[in-house]
Design a protein around this nucleic acid. Sequence first.
DNA 1: TTAAAACTACACTTTGCAGTTTACTTTTAA
DNA 2: TTAAAAGTAAACTGCAAAGTGTAGTTTTAA
Lengths: 203, 203
Amino acid sequence: MTTLSARKKAAIIDAAIDLFQKNGFQGTSMDAIAQLAQVSKRTVYNHFPSKQALFEHIAHTVWQTANQASKACFKLEEDLEPQLMALALQELALVGDESFLRLSRVLMAEFIHEPAMAQAILERFSQEESSLTQWMQQAKLHERLNIADAEQAGALFYSLIKAQAFWPQIMFGQATIPTSQHQTFARQVCTMFLAVYGKTEAL
Amino acid sequence: MTTLSARKKAAIIDAAIDLFQKNGFQGTSMDAIAQLAQVSKRTVYNHFPSKQALFEHIAHTVWQTANQASKACFKLEEDLEPQLMALALQELALVGDESFLRLSRVLMAEFIHEPAMAQAILERFSQEESSLTQWMQQAKLHERLNIADAEQAGALFYSLIKAQAFWPQIMFGQATIPTSQHQTFARQVCTMFLAVYGKTEAL
DNA sequence: TTAAAACTACACTTTGCAGTTTACTTTTAA
DNA sequence: TTAAAAGTAAACTGCAAAGTGTAGTTTTAA
């Protein structure tokens, strides 16, 4: 059995995510968090020195979650499409995860007001994407794709996924894409991507 | 020369947009707005009965701006691609406009926390998009495109544009796409869209 | 079993902000 | 030119929320 202290801490974090998402950072009071977590306010402050610290702890969690995912590795011997499919499905699994979305929503809301923070995260994101960028670079070098700018190609690939599977969910609370449709969806993404960067395979 | 009162009002609105964007609705005080607008707080309240009213005035402005744009009308006699290009360029012009982005950012930040408000706006947006949906419907009826669901096709079309030209700008402060690249960008969007919904034109 | 660590309720200080009131000055329009 | 419409500074009310202090209770781990 987990210790009482640990359970309380988890409850605080959970309550904070809930309220930050509903009301934003500014709109959430420590009293409200304590109440929802069924914990005295003093306990909240025992675990986190300030509201800001609590928020940053949550932000860090999102960050780690996002970084678990995504490893791209170019395989010369394999066909391109199955490789792209795998990458798309990987990203879909991440953005299709309710808890990841929930956390992302909390962060995105604050990003709009914090260009500096957003910029910092963006750079990390592009590090994550750099694994894809390298993949694109390889595909270019081996003349398997019609790529001029590998970074741009990678960005397009992910944005095709996010266009339908991330942004509408974040902003308008649209339902996530059911797992049963991931295959179809990923194929559509690959089709569109290859329409731009694919070598003409006719003949 | 505009009246003093009108100038003051404009200054208030401008300051409000600025601060709402930077700090959000909750994070912006009427005192701060008054100060930035170089106006006494009482004057702010003379023009707008409450902070909420001021916000809604701004929201209404965004709404009108967005609705100026976008009229789709299917033309049987014309080729599809130029028509799609025109639609893409039209949308690009809207989301590429700095002042529209600035206003959108203010709204989007609040949307994340207000699913009800977001839903309401989404419905309006889809009304706007319904003009595109009808276009898609026509294209389907005349068997010019391989469309099963016209609404879905319309949504995809706009989301392809927003994925690169709207969301990154809103969330991460990324630079808008320069007008000089609108043509290229629109063509890419059309290519991708037609890869999914186009009739095979080979032979 | 016992001392330290963690929890609790609750009162408290400080600060910031929405919105009002007041007493006075400037702008406008007839 | 003059009255009313609109602007001004500054003090004020009332409230909500960040964070602290205290005194007492429960949990934990040795």
